[in-house]
Design a protein around this nucleic acid. Sequence first.
RNA 1: GUGGCUGUAGCUCAGUUGGCAGAGCACCUGGUUGUGGUCCAGGAUGUCGUGGGUUCGAAUCCCAUCAGUCACCCCA
Length: 418
Amino acid sequence: MTLFSAPKGTFDVLPPASSTMLAVREALTAPLRTAGYGYIETPIFEDTALFARGVGESTDVVSKEMYTFTDKGGRSLTLRPELTAGLMRAFIEHKLYAGPLPIKLYTVGSNFRYERPQKGRYRHFTQIDVEALGSDDPALDAEIIALALAAYDNLGLKNFTTQLTSLGDQNCRPAYRDKLQAFLAELELDADTRRRAEINPLRVLDDKRPEVAAQLVDAPVMSAHLCDDCKAHYDAVRQYLTELGLSWQEAPKLVRGLDYYTRTTFEFVHNGLGAQASIGGGGRYDGLSAQLGGPDLSGIGWAIGVDRTLLALEAEDLTPGEGGNVAVFIVPMGQAKSAAVQLTARLRASGIATDLAYGDRGLKGAMKAANRSGARYAIVIGDRDIADGVAQVKNLETGEQDAAPLDALVTTLKEKLA
RNA sequence: GUGGCUGUAGCUCAGUUGGCAGAGCACCUGGUUGUGGUCCAGGAUGUCGUGGGUUCGAAUCCCAUCAGUCACCCCA
């Protein structure tokens, strides 16, 4: 029983699994840099009101999941529950819209939501977030989706689908919303769900309880009620995706948890994660900038959950980035410790990943450490070797060992490791 | 916020009707004083999640609580 443990809903990422985490971040961000997206960092906490206005008062995220605190100056601040609101704030505050549009940004960082933890859902989680701001070109929607798919492809991920739909805009959604509300009013629903139908009827469509889902089979869907502009936009997005050779599933009942989404909306759903199956998702948010006091500019982006992507890789037995072992392990004997310390530094400086047996445990213990380090070669160096100007180079896989001149050791090892 | 399951060694887990706290793996030492991975011998390791109750006696039964886990609501 230890005194402290990681707070509820959080976890530590330890080696060797942490190398997979680093590989995930690299694989997911590399395609962004080749597509003109610039890295941005924003604070991990923001004015509470930013999230209330940006994410939406009616969302669960804002109404019950925020880590909100008052600082010593009496300000109400909140640990960010998602990344888009902070990026939009920076976009507006620094008038990035004054330059050429669209502005393309990405970031990676921690997010916090006070939720009951379960598989794939934690109170602290990491997302990679990408945003293209200031253009409503449907080709940009396709680019954003293609970038996510390229990232997954980098990682070798296969068992997921792309769920796609359009949520309409300010012109067509209100009429649809009324129609949906009228439909929902006729159903047998519990009080909670009824309340949700009043506040945000679209979200009821997402209900997984069989008794509710059964009643929703014939519910009206947004994609059948799009106005001409939205329909044309959505058709264009799908055409670009097709031309890029990408596939997706129409998901007319797809609902996202944040209020700011408009038009194109998508989610990447993996089949190996349990109930929290979405590994990433996003969409267009054409009203968000204006809502936060900026110019009336459109935007589109996605967030990919790093932790959930890790779970997805695990489900597919993929371990990108694994390895990371040293190549060479040095075993000193007798009075050769100083020589071994210097040799270690020399090999490292020449680019050979090297570790040293610490702790003076004796030859047997040091060889055991060499074996467990995963190194391909052990270098045994003792008084006799130094006197002869050599070191013993032992191949730990085959057990073969021969003496190599010390002054040519770097070259010898590089040849053996090549 | 609601519900199910689980808490015993570093890890995976046994533990009988309530009667001395166990195994495998891992770790350490030695067999082999200049050689690991195999083998043999030996060794260390516990708030039985925590607090209370019942009992001569509790890892075991009862209550509470905390944590983990999965699911619901919701979301990455």
